[in-house]
Protein backbone atom coordinates (compact mmCIF):
# COMPACT_ATOMS: atom_id res chain seq x y z
CA UNK A 1 0.00 0.00 0.00
CA UNK A 2 1.17 3.45 -0.87
CA UNK A 3 1.97 5.64 2.11
CA UNK A 4 0.45 9.07 2.40
CA UNK A 5 3.39 11.13 1.17
CA UNK A 6 3.79 8.91 -1.88
CA UNK A 7 0.07 9.22 -2.55
CA UNK A 8 0.28 12.99 -2.28
CA UNK A 9 3.24 13.15 -4.64
CA UNK A 10 1.54 10.96 -7.18
CA UNK A 11 -1.60 13.07 -7.45
CA UNK A 12 -0.41 16.54 -6.44
CA UNK A 13 -0.27 17.65 -10.08
CA UNK A 14 -3.93 16.73 -10.66
CA UNK A 15 -5.03 18.48 -7.50
CA UNK A 16 -3.13 21.63 -8.36
CA UNK A 17 -4.69 21.57 -11.82
CA UNK A 18 -8.21 21.12 -10.46
CA UNK A 19 -7.59 23.88 -7.94
CA UNK A 20 -6.47 26.30 -10.66
CA UNK A 21 -9.49 25.44 -12.80
CA UNK A 22 -11.85 25.96 -9.86
CA UNK A 23 -10.19 29.25 -8.91
CA UNK A 24 -10.74 30.50 -12.41
CA UNK A 25 -14.33 29.27 -12.63
CA UNK A 26 -15.19 30.82 -9.30
CA UNK A 27 -13.69 34.15 -10.27
CA UNK A 28 -15.64 36.92 -11.90
CA UNK A 29 -16.71 36.22 -15.46
CA UNK A 30 -14.42 38.78 -17.10
CA UNK A 31 -11.45 38.36 -14.78
CA UNK A 32 -8.03 37.70 -16.26
CA UNK A 33 -7.67 34.65 -14.04
CA UNK A 34 -10.18 32.78 -16.19
CA UNK A 35 -8.65 29.99 -18.23
CA UNK A 36 -10.17 29.04 -21.52
CA UNK A 37 -9.93 25.29 -21.26
CA UNK A 38 -11.64 23.51 -18.41
CA UNK A 39 -12.92 20.56 -20.40
CA UNK A 40 -11.03 18.05 -18.26
CA UNK A 41 -12.85 19.07 -15.08
CA UNK A 42 -15.37 16.19 -15.22
CA UNK A 43 -12.59 13.60 -15.63
CA UNK A 44 -10.52 15.17 -12.88
CA UNK A 45 -13.60 15.34 -10.66
CA UNK A 46 -14.35 11.65 -11.10
CA UNK A 47 -10.73 10.76 -10.34
CA UNK A 48 -10.77 13.07 -7.34
CA UNK A 49 -13.78 11.31 -5.86
CA UNK A 50 -11.98 8.00 -6.21
CA UNK A 51 -8.83 9.38 -4.62
CA UNK A 52 -10.86 10.77 -1.74
CA UNK A 53 -12.48 7.40 -1.17
CA UNK A 54 -9.06 5.72 -1.27
CA UNK A 55 -7.59 8.22 1.17
CA UNK A 56 -10.49 7.56 3.51
CA UNK A 57 -10.32 3.80 3.35
CA UNK A 58 -6.56 3.78 3.79
CA UNK A 59 -6.83 5.94 6.86
CA UNK A 60 -4.75 8.82 5.57
CA UNK A 61 -4.72 11.93 7.72
CA UNK A 62 -7.81 14.08 8.19
CA UNK A 63 -6.07 17.14 6.81
CA UNK A 64 -5.59 15.33 3.49
CA UNK A 65 -9.10 13.90 3.25
CA UNK A 66 -10.47 17.27 4.22
CA UNK A 67 -8.51 18.99 1.49
CA UNK A 68 -9.75 16.49 -1.09
CA UNK A 69 -13.29 16.78 0.21
CA UNK A 70 -13.19 20.53 -0.13
CA UNK A 71 -12.01 20.22 -3.74
CA UNK A 72 -14.82 17.74 -4.42
CA UNK A 73 -17.41 20.13 -3.00
CA UNK A 74 -16.15 23.00 -5.10
CA UNK A 75 -15.99 20.92 -8.27
CA UNK A 76 -19.47 19.50 -7.57
CA UNK A 77 -20.83 23.03 -7.37
CA UNK A 78 -19.21 24.08 -10.62
CA UNK A 79 -20.37 20.98 -12.49
CA UNK A 80 -23.98 21.12 -11.32
CA UNK A 81 -24.46 24.84 -11.67
CA UNK A 82 -27.31 26.22 -13.71
CA UNK A 83 -26.28 28.23 -16.69
CA UNK A 84 -28.37 29.91 -19.33
CA UNK A 85 -29.09 33.30 -20.71
CA UNK A 86 -31.38 35.20 -18.39
CA UNK A 87 -32.81 37.37 -21.15
CA UNK A 88 -33.59 34.32 -23.28
CA UNK A 89 -35.33 32.68 -20.36
CA UNK A 90 -37.41 35.79 -19.64
CA UNK A 91 -38.58 35.97 -23.27
CA UNK A 92 -39.39 32.27 -23.23
CA UNK A 93 -41.32 32.75 -20.02
CA UNK A 94 -43.43 35.72 -21.11
CA UNK A 95 -43.86 34.34 -24.62
CA UNK A 96 -45.65 31.23 -23.42
CA UNK A 97 -43.97 29.48 -20.53
CA UNK A 98 -46.12 31.30 -18.00
CA UNK A 99 -49.39 30.73 -19.82
CA UNK A 100 -48.52 27.05 -20.33
CA UNK A 101 -47.75 26.62 -16.62
CA UNK A 102 -51.07 28.24 -15.70
CA UNK A 103 -53.06 26.14 -18.20
CA UNK A 104 -51.52 23.00 -16.79
CA UNK A 105 -53.17 23.89 -13.46
CA UNK A 106 -56.54 24.79 -14.95
CA UNK A 107 -58.44 22.74 -12.38
CA UNK A 108 -56.92 24.52 -9.41
CA UNK A 109 -57.29 27.85 -11.19
CA UNK A 110 -60.98 27.08 -11.68
CA UNK A 111 -61.33 26.27 -7.98
CA UNK A 112 -59.53 29.41 -6.81
CA UNK A 113 -61.45 31.60 -9.28
CA UNK A 114 -64.70 30.06 -8.08
CA UNK A 115 -63.77 30.70 -4.46
CA UNK A 116 -63.14 34.34 -5.21
CA UNK A 117 -65.77 35.22 -7.83
CA UNK A 118 -68.67 33.17 -6.44
CA UNK A 119 -68.09 34.73 -3.00
CA UNK A 120 -67.82 38.15 -4.60
CA UNK A 121 -71.06 37.77 -6.62
CA UNK A 122 -73.04 36.43 -3.67
CA UNK A 123 -71.81 39.13 -1.29
CA UNK A 124 -72.24 41.76 -3.99
CA UNK A 125 -75.83 40.69 -4.50
CA UNK A 126 -76.62 40.82 -0.79
CA UNK A 127 -74.82 44.15 -0.33
CA UNK A 128 -76.75 45.64 -3.24
CA UNK A 129 -80.01 44.32 -1.82
CA UNK A 130 -79.60 45.95 1.58
CA UNK A 131 -77.17 48.31 3.29
CA UNK A 132 -77.39 46.09 6.38
CA UNK A 133 -75.66 43.30 4.48
CA UNK A 134 -72.99 45.73 3.26
CA UNK A 135 -72.36 46.72 6.88
CA UNK A 136 -72.23 43.08 7.89
CA UNK A 137 -69.57 42.33 5.28
CA UNK A 138 -67.29 45.34 5.70
CA UNK A 139 -68.41 47.28 8.76
CA UNK A 140 -70.13 50.66 8.64
CA UNK A 141 -66.86 52.55 9.10
CA UNK A 142 -65.34 51.07 5.96
CA UNK A 143 -68.60 51.64 4.13
CA UNK A 144 -68.52 55.37 4.96
CA UNK A 145 -64.89 55.63 3.90
CA UNK A 146 -65.76 53.90 0.63
CA UNK A 147 -68.76 56.16 0.02
CA UNK A 148 -66.65 59.27 0.61
CA UNK A 149 -63.91 58.02 -1.68
CA UNK A 150 -66.21 57.25 -4.61
CA UNK A 151 -68.64 60.14 -4.05
CA UNK A 152 -69.41 61.52 -7.57
CA UNK A 153 -69.84 65.00 -6.08
CA UNK A 154 -66.15 65.05 -5.19
CA UNK A 155 -65.13 64.80 -8.81
CA UNK A 156 -62.02 62.71 -8.25
CA UNK A 157 -61.37 59.69 -6.15
CA UNK A 158 -58.09 61.10 -4.96
CA UNK A 159 -57.78 64.34 -3.03
CA UNK A 160 -58.63 67.48 -4.95
CA UNK A 161 -55.81 68.77 -7.14
CA UNK A 162 -53.44 65.96 -6.17
CA UNK A 163 -54.12 63.51 -8.98
CA UNK A 164 -50.89 63.71 -10.89
CA UNK A 165 -48.67 64.45 -7.91
CA UNK A 166 -49.62 61.23 -6.20
CA UNK A 167 -49.37 58.91 -9.23
CA UNK A 168 -45.97 57.50 -8.40
CA UNK A 169 -46.76 57.25 -4.72
CA UNK A 170 -49.88 55.24 -5.51
CA UNK A 171 -47.86 53.08 -7.89
CA UNK A 172 -45.47 52.23 -5.04
CA UNK A 173 -48.35 51.64 -2.70
CA UNK A 174 -50.13 49.25 -5.07
CA UNK A 175 -46.92 47.32 -5.66
CA UNK A 176 -46.23 46.96 -1.96
CA UNK A 177 -49.79 46.09 -1.06
CA UNK A 178 -51.14 44.04 -3.95
CA UNK A 179 -48.10 42.01 -4.96
CA UNK A 180 -47.48 41.19 -1.30
CA UNK A 181 -51.06 39.86 -1.10
CA UNK A 182 -50.35 37.62 -4.11
CA UNK A 183 -47.20 36.24 -2.54
CA UNK A 184 -48.90 35.65 0.79
CA UNK A 185 -51.83 33.95 -0.93
CA UNK A 186 -49.33 31.58 -2.52
CA UNK A 187 -47.19 30.91 0.56
CA UNK A 188 -50.06 30.33 2.97
CA UNK A 189 -51.27 27.47 0.77
CA UNK A 190 -48.71 25.27 2.49
CA UNK A 191 -51.01 25.25 5.53
CA UNK A 192 -53.10 22.54 3.81
CA UNK A 193 -54.76 25.18 1.57
CA UNK A 194 -56.36 26.93 4.55
CA UNK A 195 -54.46 30.22 4.21
CA UNK A 196 -55.07 30.48 0.47
CA UNK A 197 -58.78 29.72 0.76
CA UNK A 198 -59.08 32.30 3.53
CA UNK A 199 -57.41 35.06 1.48
CA UNK A 200 -59.54 34.29 -1.59
CA UNK A 201 -62.83 34.21 0.28
CA UNK A 202 -61.97 37.25 2.40
CA UNK A 203 -61.07 39.33 -0.66
CA UNK A 204 -64.16 38.02 -2.44
CA UNK A 205 -66.35 39.28 0.41
CA UNK A 206 -64.68 42.70 0.59
CA UNK A 207 -64.47 43.41 -3.13
CA UNK A 208 -67.90 41.94 -3.86
CA UNK A 209 -69.58 43.89 -1.07
CA UNK A 210 -67.91 47.14 -2.14
CA UNK A 211 -68.93 46.67 -5.78
CA UNK A 212 -72.49 45.67 -4.90
CA UNK A 213 -73.07 48.48 -2.46
CA UNK A 214 -71.55 51.26 -4.60
CA UNK A 215 -73.55 50.11 -7.64
CA UNK A 216 -76.75 50.07 -5.59
CA UNK A 217 -76.32 53.65 -4.42
CA UNK A 218 -75.58 54.79 -7.97
CA UNK A 219 -71.86 55.52 -7.81
CA UNK A 220 -71.34 53.61 -11.05
CA UNK A 221 -69.38 56.23 -12.91
CA UNK A 222 -66.76 56.73 -10.22
CA UNK A 223 -66.47 53.13 -9.05
CA UNK A 224 -66.65 51.16 -12.29
CA UNK A 225 -64.78 53.89 -14.11
CA UNK A 226 -61.93 53.58 -11.65
CA UNK A 227 -61.67 49.82 -11.31
CA UNK A 228 -62.43 48.65 -14.86
CA UNK A 229 -58.91 49.27 -16.22
CA UNK A 230 -56.86 47.36 -13.70
CA UNK A 231 -59.47 44.82 -12.65
CA UNK A 232 -58.41 42.17 -15.17
CA UNK A 233 -54.70 41.85 -14.33
CA UNK A 234 -55.29 42.33 -10.61
CA UNK A 235 -58.14 39.88 -10.09
CA UNK A 236 -56.82 37.25 -12.51
CA UNK A 237 -53.41 37.45 -10.80
CA UNK A 238 -55.04 36.97 -7.41
CA UNK A 239 -56.80 33.84 -8.64
CA UNK A 240 -53.61 32.56 -10.26
CA UNK A 241 -51.72 33.13 -6.98
CA UNK A 242 -54.53 31.22 -5.30
CA UNK A 243 -54.05 28.32 -7.72
CA UNK A 244 -50.30 28.32 -6.94
CA UNK A 245 -51.10 28.25 -3.22
CA UNK A 246 -53.57 25.39 -3.68
CA UNK A 247 -50.82 23.44 -5.48
CA UNK A 248 -48.74 23.48 -2.28
CA UNK A 249 -51.68 22.53 -0.08
CA UNK A 250 -52.94 19.77 -2.39
CA UNK A 251 -49.46 18.23 -2.52
CA UNK A 252 -49.73 17.72 1.23
CA UNK A 253 -53.39 16.67 1.26
CA UNK A 254 -53.18 14.33 -1.74
CA UNK A 255 -49.52 13.47 -2.42
CA UNK A 256 -50.30 10.45 -4.61
CA UNK A 257 -47.72 7.68 -4.81
CA UNK A 258 -44.86 9.62 -3.28
CA UNK A 259 -43.95 11.00 0.10
CA UNK A 260 -45.59 14.25 1.17
CA UNK A 261 -42.21 15.99 1.20
CA UNK A 262 -41.36 14.93 -2.33
CA UNK A 263 -44.84 15.88 -3.56
CA UNK A 264 -44.41 19.29 -1.92
CA UNK A 265 -40.98 19.88 -3.50
CA UNK A 266 -42.30 18.98 -6.95
CA UNK A 267 -45.45 21.06 -6.62
CA UNK A 268 -43.52 24.07 -5.32
CA UNK A 269 -41.10 23.88 -8.23
CA UNK A 270 -44.01 23.86 -10.70
CA UNK A 271 -45.67 26.73 -8.83
CA UNK A 272 -42.67 29.06 -9.16
CA UNK A 273 -43.30 30.28 -12.74
CA UNK A 274 -46.98 30.67 -11.89
CA UNK A 275 -46.43 32.92 -8.87
CA UNK A 276 -43.72 34.91 -10.66
CA UNK A 277 -46.11 35.54 -13.55
CA UNK A 278 -48.89 36.50 -11.14
CA UNK A 279 -46.53 39.01 -9.51
CA UNK A 280 -45.72 40.53 -12.91
CA UNK A 281 -49.42 40.76 -13.79
CA UNK A 282 -50.07 42.59 -10.55
CA UNK A 283 -47.18 44.94 -11.37
CA UNK A 284 -48.98 45.71 -14.62
CA UNK A 285 -52.19 46.22 -12.66
CA UNK A 286 -50.43 48.63 -10.30
CA UNK A 287 -49.16 50.62 -13.25
CA UNK A 288 -52.61 50.85 -14.84
CA UNK A 289 -54.23 51.68 -11.51
CA UNK A 290 -51.76 54.48 -10.77
CA UNK A 291 -51.57 56.09 -14.20
CA UNK A 292 -54.77 55.24 -16.05
CA UNK A 293 -57.57 54.37 -13.66
CA UNK A 294 -57.61 57.77 -11.92
CA UNK A 295 -57.91 59.65 -15.20
CA UNK A 296 -61.23 61.37 -15.62
CA UNK A 297 -62.67 60.13 -18.89
CA UNK A 298 -66.07 59.14 -20.15
CA UNK A 299 -67.40 56.00 -18.47
CA UNK A 300 -67.96 54.30 -21.81
CA UNK A 301 -64.27 54.72 -22.72
CA UNK A 302 -63.11 53.41 -19.36
CA UNK A 303 -65.41 50.39 -19.57
CA UNK A 304 -64.43 49.61 -23.17
CA UNK A 305 -60.73 49.72 -22.30
CA UNK A 306 -61.40 47.56 -19.25
CA UNK A 307 -63.25 44.95 -21.31
CA UNK A 308 -60.51 45.01 -23.94
CA UNK A 309 -57.87 44.35 -21.25
CA UNK A 310 -59.96 41.45 -19.91
CA UNK A 311 -60.20 39.93 -23.40
CA UNK A 312 -56.45 40.36 -24.00
CA UNK A 313 -55.61 38.66 -20.72
CA UNK A 314 -57.91 35.72 -21.35
CA UNK A 315 -56.60 35.32 -24.90
CA UNK A 316 -53.02 35.45 -23.63
CA UNK A 317 -53.60 32.82 -20.96
CA UNK A 318 -55.52 30.55 -23.34
CA UNK A 319 -53.34 30.84 -26.43
CA UNK A 320 -49.77 31.89 -25.57
CA UNK A 321 -47.19 29.14 -25.99
CA UNK A 322 -49.53 26.72 -27.68
CA UNK A 323 -48.24 24.31 -30.30
CA UNK A 324 -44.58 24.70 -29.43
CA UNK A 325 -43.27 22.03 -27.16
CA UNK A 326 -39.80 23.15 -26.25
CA UNK A 327 -39.14 23.86 -22.64
CA UNK A 328 -37.29 26.93 -21.52
Amino acid sequence: MLNQRGFEQQYEKDWARIEATLDSLESWRFSKKRVADNSDLPTLYAALCQQHALAQSRGYSHALTKRLHELITRAHHQLYQNRGHLLYRIIQFLGGGFARAVREQWKLLAISSALFFVTAFICGGFAAYSVDFADLFMGSKNRFALETMYDPARGSIREEGMEDDTNFYMFGFYIMNNISIDFRTFASGILFCVGTVFVLVFNGIQIGAAAGHLSAIGYNETFWGFVSGHSAPELIALCISGAAGLMLGMALIKPGRQTRRLALVRAAKKAVPIIVGAGLMTLLAAFIEAYWSSKELDLSIKISVGVLIWILHILYLCLAGRGRHHHG
Partner: peptide, 15 residues
Protein backbone atom coordinates in the same frame (compact mmCIF):
# COMPACT_ATOMS: atom_id res chain seq x y z
CA UNK B 1 -44.92 66.13 -5.92
CA UNK B 2 -41.38 65.14 -4.94
CA UNK B 3 -42.57 64.29 -1.41
CA UNK B 4 -45.09 61.84 -2.77
CA UNK B 5 -42.69 60.42 -5.33
CA UNK B 6 -40.07 59.86 -2.62
CA UNK B 7 -42.66 58.02 -0.52
CA UNK B 8 -43.61 55.88 -3.50
CA UNK B 9 -39.98 55.09 -4.12
CA UNK B 10 -39.52 54.15 -0.47
CA UNK B 11 -42.50 51.79 -0.59
CA UNK B 12 -41.08 50.03 -3.65
CA UNK B 13 -37.68 49.70 -1.95
CA UNK B 14 -39.37 48.26 1.12
CA UNK B 15 -41.28 45.79 -1.02
Amino acid sequence: QSDYSAMGFFLIAQF
